[in-house]
Amino acid sequence: MALVEFTPNLYRHVKCQSMTVPGDTIIQVLYTVCEENTRLRSYLLDDQGQLRKHVTVFIDNVRIQDRSNLSDTVSASSAVYIAQALSGG
């Protein structure tokens, strides 16, 4: 069961608390998170069910590589962190 945590910037829009969810890949984890907290879905995923362009996910402090199919693997002891993708400029 991976531990999923969210950026505090989400709290002002949606009530979301850290949760532990099953899943072998990040897509399974994200979909389970969105099933348990349905309001979160439109904040994390777009109309096509893909990760929003400006949302990023870290697994054990490493940013996921496969944003298209969300196939990055998650272990039972993984820590998943979901945040807005910040950039400079």
Binding site: I27, D46, D47, Q48, G49, S68
Partner: peptide, 24 residues
């Protein structure tokens, strides 16, 4: 908050032709 307008879900994992499916 209520459900926002959205485009129909057309994306299918592994189907590259659906990669350009639009989102509001």
């Amino acid at each position: 908050e209520c459900k926002a307008p959205a485009f129909p879900a057309q994306y299918k994992a592994g189907d590259e032709s659906s990669n350009e499916a639009k989102s509001v």
